[in-house]
Simulated assay, not measured.
Amino acid sequence: MPPSCGDTSSCGDTSSCADTSSCADTSSLGGTSSSGDALSPDGGTLSPDGGTLSAGEARSPRDARSPRDAFSSGGTADGVPDGVPDGVLPAVVAFRLEFARRQARIARPVPGGLVVLDPRLPDSHEHNQLLWADGEPRPPQGLTAADPTTPAATDPVTSPGPASPVDLAGLAETHLAALSHRHLTVLDDEVGRAGAPALGAAGYEHREELVMVRVLRSAPAPDPSAPGGEQPPAAEQPLAGGRRHLTEEVSAAELRTAVLAWQRHWLPDLPQEVLEQLADRRGVRVRGADQVRYLVSREADGTIAAWCDLYVDAGRHIAQVEEVVTAVGRTRRGHGDAVVGAAVALAARAGVDFVFLLADAGDWPRTWYARRGFTTVGRSHAFTRA
């Protein structure tokens, strides 16, 4: 099943799409790091450096909390399932804003959100879009460029307060005018639902995304220096049906051939130069988080059969699994389970409390993820006009 335009784990029609950054079957797209050390889905081994890539210092939006803070918040918010602290969803929103900002060639704060642009990747929706979070302007701090010799551009916030649904379309026209597409990610469910009719009338396609979380730790890590304070190992993701595949971490270059083959199959009408641009953006994603790792599962002959990305924010103790993909003709062999299980195990070893992912609210992969321990805690909305 092909991916839809945007930056989330979803599947859909791509007839007018130049962005393949998502899908969730175990049929999505993937992405960047380096190592080559073998990882078993039930823990495995890593070399001391583990191929971890540093993306520089992360700065949080002003009121963003670590999900770890939520353990003492006195319960869960309405709509958040039992056992999931109420600080998780705000932490996910902060993570997504920061991940986009850290990659951006140009980052421009707007009322309630952020515009990110990268002229080198004009067909990548995730790198050229408006992200809207809430009514409080959140000027990015510590902006960095993808090229260390060229600082990222930033404009001042000109009008505080929440943006209305009409404002969202207007902001997109103002800040994305030079692009052939318009892409908006609305991280607030209520605003996304309210804005859908107006944006639909303006020609935008709407995709509703589920924010799904798996809790790895149910309490803050104790102080290792205190008596009895050593942290026990976190539980790891079992594989469906008892099948196991050896997984490993690879570089973007090693993954590129498999990604291009998958894109050509699902997007046969796109020019080759656009496909290559979308595959090569993985070199930019490494700036998005403290750790950006690409995991693959191989067939016995060494062919890459599935892959996924893992993005780790050490400061917030949260991680994202993204672009879970199974190669054409390799489905129903346990490879998707292998890469997701390996990603969860790596996140747990990195000290992460929560792993989240995004799934299309109207497509079947959401139930696949639910069977693997992920729980829906909220919704966001993607709007695209080609």
Rank of each mutant, 00 (worst) to 15 (best):
V274W: 00
G135N: 09
G283R: 11
P41S: 03
F71E: 01
I318E: 08
D123L: 12
V328N: 02
G362Q: 08
W262T: 14
G336C: 12
R243K: 03
S297V: 11
C17Q: 06
D63S: 14
F99I: 04
R101M: 13
D19T: 13
V340N: 04
T376E: 05
R349Q: 14
L179F: 03
T326M: 10
R287N: 04
E236A: 14
A55S: 12
D301N: 15
R193F: 01
R282E: 10
H183R: 13
L278W: 00
E254F: 12
S72W: 14
A18T: 13
V215C: 08
Q272Y: 00
V274T: 04
A279R: 00
S73N: 08
D189F: 02
W132P: 00
L216F: 11
A163Q: 03
L358V: 03
V250D: 01
P271D: 02
F71A: 12
V215S: 14
G112Q: 06
A343G: 08
E173F: 08
M1V: 14
T76V: 11
D155W: 11
A252W: 13
F374S: 03
H206D: 09
P238R: 12
L143K: 12
A169P: 01
G302M: 04
D25H: 10
R281T: 00
V286A: 09
G12A: 05
P41H: 05
P119K: 03
W368I: 13
L131S: 10
T45N: 03
T76A: 11
Q237G: 10
Q277D: 01
A234L: 09
G12T: 00
T45H: 09
E273V: 07
L239I: 12
P81A: 11
A64I: 09
S34Y: 13
L121D: 03
D63V: 15
P271S: 09
A153C: 02
S15Q: 15
V324M: 05
L267E: 02
